[in-house]
């Protein structure tokens, strides 16, 4: 029990409008894991976070956070939980430091367990901006400040709802680096993201779609969970190539990845590559590159929802 930070069984949520956001979800997050909930918009990620933060009502066979039943037991462990909502939720008309002071004052005064303000500002790199209004910060800075305000009380569990959406790639990387650093200090993190590439770095991943769990496990387990191979095909006109290759014998699905195509096949059969070459050749297209690549989590997701 003690090493389970989050456990839900049969979690359902139907909003007043009739929308069923979660349709029976089972999930378990171990202490000191960085656990990722991954899925497209509308998969139910935000609802899951809100349920665990005690912000919305729900139905479930079991829902526990830090061993306490949600929502009635939450008040006992609130001071061990941090929660970053999807939207920026700090006061834009307060400065960085005032926001920090405000949230610090909402938690029990426990000087020993506390990180000092200075320590936090320096760790996150917001020290030069301490007198700036929160509304005037960049997107990445805002998320760092939100994280900061949720770290003052030294939580043992951090719930983060799409913390890196709308944040530039460099800041995104910095943000996760910081999170993994905190994990080494014993912090459990449950974060959601729509970016499949971010999922590769998590300890465990839950693939979510339309309120249901598609797959759950370590990134390796998830990548190995679908049969077949992925062929990466590079060519000059990938869009036309994709249309041309659809329905080719031995190809189950074709997905466009920027300037490349991912072709899903049961196996890398000897005749397959030749068939592809011929088919594209008829359309006047030439293959520049063709190789078997490992499944990414995004590949898995696309396979499972195809």
């Amino acid at each position: 029990m003690a090493d389970e930070a989050v456990r839900v069984r049969g979690l359902r949520k139907r909003y007043a409008g009739g929308v069923e956001a979660l349709r029976g979800l089972d999930l378990c997050v171990q202490t000191a894991q960085v656990y990722g909930v991954v899925g497209p918009d509308g998969a139910g990620k935000t609802t899951l976070m809100k349920v665990l933060a005690g912000v919305v009502s729900f139905q479930a066979e079991e829902a526990r956070v830090l061993g306490r039943p949600v929502p009635e037991g939450l008040s006992e462990v609130r001071h061990h939980i941090g929660y970053l909502p999807q939207r920026f939720s700090l006061y834009g008309d307060l400065t960085v430091e005032e926001n920090l002071d405000f949230y610090a004052a909402l938690y029990p005064p426990d000087p020993e367990g506390r990180r000092t303000k200075q320590e936090l500002l320096e760790m996150i790199g917001l020290d030069p901006f301490r007198d700036r209004m929160a509304a005037d910060l960049s997107g990445g800075m805002k998320q760092k400040l939100a994280l900061l305000c949720n770290l003052v009380h030294r939580p043992s569990l951090l719930l983060m709802d799409e913390p890196t959406v709308g944040v530039d790639p460099v800041s995104r990387r910095e943000f996760w680096t910081l999170v993994f650093e905190l994990q080494r200090g014993g912090l459990t993190v449950l974060a959601s993201t729509p970016y499949m590439d971010e999922a590769e770095q998590f300890d465990r991943v839950a693939l979510l779609s339309e309120g249901r769990l598609l797959r759950e496990g370590t990134p390796e387990e998830i990548r190995a969970s679908v049969p077949g191979v992925v062929l990466e095909l590079g060519c000059e006109q990938p869009f036309q190539a994709a249309r041309c290759l659809e329905g080719t014998q031995g190809i189950q699905d074709v997905q466009l990845f920027g300037d490349r195509l991912h072709l899903f096949a049961a196996q890398d059969a000897p005749g397959l590559r030749q068939a592809l070459e011929e088919r594209l050749g008829q359309a006047g297209l030439r293959i520049q590159r063709l190789r078997v690549v490992p499944f990414s989590i995004e590949d898995v997701f696309l396979r499972l929802t195809a």
Binding site: K50, G54, R78, F88, S89, L90, G92
Partner: peptide
């Protein structure tokens, strides 16, 4: 409206 209430109610207040 600005979402600060959502943050606020997850604190021990």
């Amino acid at each position: 409206e600005t979402g600060t209430l959502e943050q606020l109610i997850t604190t021990p207040i």
